[in-house]
Simulated scan of single mutants.
Amino acid sequence: MKQALLGLLLLCVLSSATHGQTAISPVCSRQSSPTGLGMSSPVAEAATEGDEKAPVAQAALKLAFAIENSIPDPYIGVSGNFDGQGLSLGLIQFNLGGSIQKTFGPVDDGVFASTMPKWGDVFRAAVKTASPSAAIKQVLVMQDHVGKRWIVKPDAIAELQAFLGSREARAAQDRAVALEYKSAYRRAAQWAQERGAKTPTPREIATFVDNQVFSGGFLGHMWLKQAKQFRDSFKGDDGAMIAFVGKWLRSCPASGSSLLYGADEGKANADVWRSRFPSGTQLSDERALLFVFGFVRALTANGPPKVAGQPDQSGIFKSQVVQRRALIALGTGKANGIPWPGGVLDD
């Protein structure tokens, strides 16, 4: 009994030495959570306006568009019902959870008819339908259900791309993205101010642009307080902190019913981080806190709401959230195959 207790004590000491004092499990799953950090909501967004046409803004948006679409013209990106949201379209993959309706609802009916001779009536009806579940059901006829996958039919892809590439639909996307950027910039400015800086850095802007695009602007009740608390648990060793997150990424299931999207790429990124940021590495406060924010925010990422009859996506995006935010904070690795662009975002 005494030996067993001593063994348990030694195991706890070794675990503490390896993983700091964090209570967060290093084992990845869709149920992973920011255990021990508590939750808090920041005050209202900073009362400041960002210019979506500024070079840093354009660079941050271009990075988000590339990660979302991975095609030369992100305006015409089309994805099927992989996430239970019917369709994901365009610059920031607007979906039928509401953003497609809001973005393309004002587009004239004639544009639907002229660019989508076969599928225009179906798509327009979905765009004009306020109920997400009803709109999602309407567009499933444009897709083939192969196993567990929904694949948009070739003629439907062609027509959707023609619509999305029209002058009117491009302008509608630009207007929607401008609003998203302004909200992201206000949040970045708030983060910077609470960190003690007068204005947000390019990486902070890019981080909150990505949070706006991929996480709907939601913070998951994670903020600067939680980021500092997690970082402090590693007692100044940012290399050990990065290694902990890397271990979590490596354990994410890449197949089966419990898989997380992007798990294979996550393992590759963890290997890159291990060589670039060994134990003892110390990052700037700006980059370390952004890295941690990406991780703890990912732990609260529960995916789109469950829609009756659609696949359960709860927690399936956690690994991808970590990788997207880490790409920005660390400036290395890839997210959805996209490398860090550098340039003005490195300033």
Results as ranks from 00 to 15, higher is better:
Gly90Val: 14
Pro154Glu: 06
Asp109Tyr: 14
Gly331Arg: 07
Ser70Gly: 03
Thr48Arg: 15
Gly7His: 11
Gln282Val: 01
Val152Trp: 08
His19Phe: 12
Leu260Arg: 05
Ser131Leu: 02
Ala176Gly: 02
Leu5Asp: 11
Glu194Met: 11
Ala134Glu: 15
Ala113Arg: 13
Leu164Arg: 08
Pro304Lys: 13
Gln143Asp: 07
Ser319Asp: 13
Lys2Cys: 14
Pro253Leu: 08
Lys228Phe: 06
Leu91Met: 14
Gln3Phe: 10
Glu180Lys: 11
Phe214Arg: 09
Ala189Trp: 13
Ser40Tyr: 12
Val122Ser: 06
Ala59Leu: 13
Gly86Ser: 02
Gly120Thr: 04
Asn269Ser: 09
Asp210Trp: 04
Phe163Arg: 03
Lys225Ala: 06
Val322Arg: 07
Ala169Thr: 04
Pro34His: 05
Lys267Asn: 09
Leu89Ala: 04
Ala227Met: 02
Lys53Glu: 10
Phe218Gly: 15
Asp51Leu: 12
Ala298His: 05
Pro202Val: 05
Ala135Asp: 04
Tyr75Gln: 13
Val146Thr: 08
Ala57Leu: 14
Ile100Met: 15
Phe123Val: 11
Ala135Cys: 10
Ser41Gln: 14
Arg30Val: 01
Leu37Gly: 05
Ala176Arg: 10
Val292Tyr: 07
Gln143Phe: 05
Pro311Ile: 02
Thr115Gly: 04
Ser131Tyr: 01
Pro278Leu: 07
Glu194Trp: 10
Ala178Ile: 07
Ser25Met: 00
Val111Met: 15
Ala335Glu: 07
Asp83Pro: 03
Gln58Ser: 11
Ile76Val: 14
Ile242Arg: 02
Ala254Asn: 11
Lys225Ser: 00
Gly342Ile: 10
Arg195Thr: 05
Ile338Thr: 15
Ser319Thr: 15
Gln143Val: 01
Gly196Glu: 00
Gln21Phe: 12
Pro202Ala: 10
Ser255Val: 04
Thr199Gln: 11
Ser88Phe: 00
Ala23Val: 13
Ser131Arg: 04
Asn211Ser: 07
Ile338Gln: 13
Asp121Phe: 09
Pro34Gln: 07
Gly280Asp: 06
Phe112Ser: 12
Val292Ile: 07
Ala47Val: 11
Leu283Lys: 00
Phe295Lys: 01
Lys62Trp: 12
Thr201Gly: 02
Ala192His: 03
Gly216Trp: 11
Asp264His: 03
Leu164Gly: 01
Arg195Gly: 03
Lys128Val: 13
Phe234Val: 00
Leu249Glu: 10
Gln138Gly: 05
Gln173Ile: 01
Lys2Arg: 15
Leu224Cys: 07
Val209Gly: 01
Ala47Met: 04
Leu179Ala: 15
Gln101Arg: 11
Gln226Asp: 08
Val139Asp: 08
Val292Ser: 02
Ala240Glu: 12
Lys228Ser: 01
Arg149Gly: 00
Ser257Cys: 09
Leu37His: 01
Phe218Lys: 15
Gln21Gly: 10
Ala169Val: 12
Leu327Pro: 01
Glu52Gln: 08
Ile328Val: 04
Thr48Asn: 07
Ala169Tyr: 02
Ile76Pro: 00
Ala23Arg: 14
Gly80Tyr: 03
Arg324Ser: 09
Glu286Met: 10
Ile136Cys: 06
Glu52Cys: 12
Thr22Pro: 03
Lys267Pro: 06
Ser32Ala: 03
Val213Arg: 00
Ala240Tyr: 03
Leu8Tyr: 05
Leu6Pro: 03
Arg170Glu: 05
Ala57Asn: 04
Glu180Trp: 09
Ser258Gly: 06
Phe234Tyr: 14
Val344Cys: 14
Pro154Tyr: 12
Val139Gly: 10
Ile92Lys: 01
Phe291Tyr: 11
